[in-house]
């Protein structure tokens, strides 16, 4: 008897979940444009900023947005896009989890005759309909140049990289190389912390122990990791270590303002998320659309941080 009651409860729970979760999407009209958005990992603050901006823009334009989160797994991302294709969405937007591994989604969408927009990161298969994002190398160049201007030549630095093979990691490292930062300094160590704050913190702690006062700067490929390195440096009483990163997440900007964090290169998340929706809507309506939208990076430092906090991106880009 008990078992039967449990089964009943279980069923009710399942129905409730599904029905409850269905929520507002029933109101979707027949002609409404539907966009499928495949995010790589919404637990990443920066990615979340992009997807939040996309959701806001979709609301504003009155289009239906289906959001799928691959949670950092390439296979899940491919499955997510397969689901969008079955749902016959009008446009697919994808933030690639991996330059190579996510590439099959482009041909899958092309085969299904669904336009595909690649957002934020590079993808190996360039037969996509449109691209909205940044050139990752540019952020590496801005960060590298700033470091070379603000840290003495020949100083000892360490570099914290993103997940090996991801577009941000490859591009930013190439940016460091392109401006000559790797030769300008004495690079003690290059390690990945997978965009993760805790991993970067552990890494920085180890470096601070190993190299002690010899370590002059830590260059991070994103701010989450930069914040981790900063916490480690401050905890070790080393406020002299110059640390910089990319993304301009809130606490990094606050740290720039407080003077503990050297530079945060702003990658305009809202511009990318909202921009990709705008392009998607244009494609769906059959209007002219830009095939390649590049949203520029800009470095936030002690000089312009006040202006940025007051006036947003527009105040520092012009």
């Amino acid at each position: 008897m008990k078992v039967r009651r449990l089964i009943a409860i279980m069923m009710i729970c399942c129905v409730a979940t599904l029905v409850f979760a269905q929520g507002g999407s029933e109101s979707a009209g027949e002609d409404q444009i539907t966009i499928g958005f495949s995010s790589k990992d919404n637990s990443d603050v920066f990615v979340k900023n992009i997807t939040d901006a996309a959701v806001a823009k979709a609301d504003e334009l009155g289009v239906k947005l289906l959001m799928a989160d691959a949670r950092g797994d390439v296979n899940t991302q491919i499955s997510d896009v397969e689901n969008f294709i079955v749902q016959d969405v009008d446009v697919v937007i994808v933030i690639p989890q991996s330059v190579e591994g996510s590439a099959p989604v482009v041909s899958m969408c092309n085969d299904a005759g669904i336009p595909i927009i690649v957002c934020n990161g590079d993808i190996a298969d360039t037969n996509y309909t449109a691209f909205v994002g940044c050139t990752d190398q540019e952020s590496g160049e801005i960060l590298g140049t700033w470091m070379m201007e603000n840290v003495a030549e020949g100083s000892n630095i360490a570099i914290i990289e993103g997940p090996m093979g991801q577009s941000g990691q490859v591009g930013r490292y190439n940016g460091f190389k392109a401006v000559g930062m790797l030769d300008y300094f004495n690079v003690l160590s290059v390690q990945t912390a997978n965009w993760k704050r805790d991993e970067a913190m552990a890494l920085a702690e180890d470096w601070l122990t190993t190299y002690g006062d010899d370590l002059d700067a830590i260059v991070c490929e994103n701010d989450d990791m930069g914040m981790g390195a900063l916490s480690a440096a401050l905890a070790a009483g080393r406020d002299d270590v110059v640390i910089g990163g990319v993304d301009a997440i809130d606490d990094a900007v606050q740290a720039v303002k407080a003077g503990t964090y050297g530079i945060s290169v702003l990658q305009d998340a809202a511009g990318q998320g909202g921009g990709s929706i705008e392009v998607a809507v244009k494609i769906a309506k059959g209007e002219d659309f830009p095939k390649d939208t590049r949203i520029p990076f800009v470095g936030i430092t002690a000089e312009n941080v006040e202006a940025y906090l007051e006036g947003g991106v527009a105040a520092i880009t012009e």
Binding site: D73, N75, I78, S98, E100, G101, A103, P104, G165
Partner: peptide, 16 residues
């Protein structure tokens, strides 16, 4: 199957 599906050999494949 996974490598074939994602057309690449990924060291992080199968995580979790």
């Amino acid at each position: 199957i996974l490598s074939a599906r994602i057309s690449s050999g990924q060291p992080n494949a199968g995580d979790g």
